[in-house]
Nucleic acid binder design. Sequence first.
DNA 1: AAAAAAAGAATGAACGTTCATTTATTATAT
DNA 2: ATATAATAAATGAACGTTCATTCTTTTTTT
Lengths: 192, 192
Amino acid sequence: MNQQEKVTDKKKALLDATLNLVNNDGFHKASMSKIAKLAKVAPATIYLYFENKQDLINSLYLTVKSSFSEYAFKDYRDDLPVKKGFEIIWYNIADYKLNKIDEATFLSQCDNTPIIDATAAEEGLKHLQPLLDLWEKAKEEGIVKPLSNYILYAYTIYPLSFLLAIQQKSYYSLNDEMRQKAFQSAWDAIKI
Amino acid sequence: MNQQEKVTDKKKALLDATLNLVNNDGFHKASMSKIAKLAKVAPATIYLYFENKQDLINSLYLTVKSSFSEYAFKDYRDDLPVKKGFEIIWYNIADYKLNKIDEATFLSQCDNTPIIDATAAEEGLKHLQPLLDLWEKAKEEGIVKPLSNYILYAYTIYPLSFLLAIQQKSYYSLNDEMRQKAFQSAWDAIKI
DNA sequence: AAAAAAAGAATGAACGTTCATTTATTATAT
DNA sequence: ATATAATAAATGAACGTTCATTCTTTTTTT
């Protein structure tokens, strides 16, 4: 293992530890020493890789967000028919939310609290551009209702966050059949 | 002003202060001394009304949640036709989320983080029972798709949280026309 | 042997909470 | 009605603890 890889390893261990602690105990209980202990590293070592706690959190957010959007647009091409393209993206995001539960939970916590810098939050918003482009095309073609992209998002993608939360509290688990029905509801909400 | 009212006043000032600080700075930055200062009270006074910080937060959550559900079912009666009843509840909740922004923001923060005790969270869940009952009736009558109440919630009520978040970041504001369209999408998502 | 990485101990500041008093209110006695 | 006693409410200072961060020393790599 070379130097570069080792650096990445420690950094990754720290990001993982932070993710888990923030998810399970909340930001206010995720202290630097706990993070260090979980990552099997001395507290001071964190400062070799991150400027301070805020930088650690921001970095984690951007890292996870970018892994999310990579996942979301896997196998998607903008020359596909509108509904097919939307279906691919929707199922990708559903898979992410229901399989990569820790990452998705963390993102949802960041999006609903002020623990992330305004600048980092803005940076994270840019990741969904291909979906916004798709919706513009869909509206032009008269396939989807002429609603703002915010509303389209609210009724198709955002509900998945609730299903994630429910599943995580293990009141409920979403099988393939349910997933199809959920997609149908998303589509019914926005289709003309 | 009698004694009872004075007690309620200080308590209310403390709950208000906590709401504002947690909303703006996050739970981890809302220290007891800041809360006390904002409520114009000595730090020690908080402990006359609440056991500790966790109890303060839990109390705030339950207070707000109960004001929310009172608002949600205003003018609702279970002998109304299903769609009419749903419409009343939906618009009530929309009004709450878009007008009582601070309270709604706080609830959304609580629902997406581990800052609330498990017991308090469970307690808060019971408030939506009339809506769940309505949905059961709607499914029996074949007016609404045979989906779990979780999914029905995810596609009708939950999207309002996103619209709240958007409006609060003031990227966007929801007028009456948009609100009607949003209701239409909610209904389209679940109607048969 | 020199440089870089990591560790652990040490730092002041800030935290939630408690304490001994003071201030305000209510009840009792004159 | 007035003065006094008893109670309740509220305070600011102080507590022990924990926090994020830094400093010094040790270990590892080159």
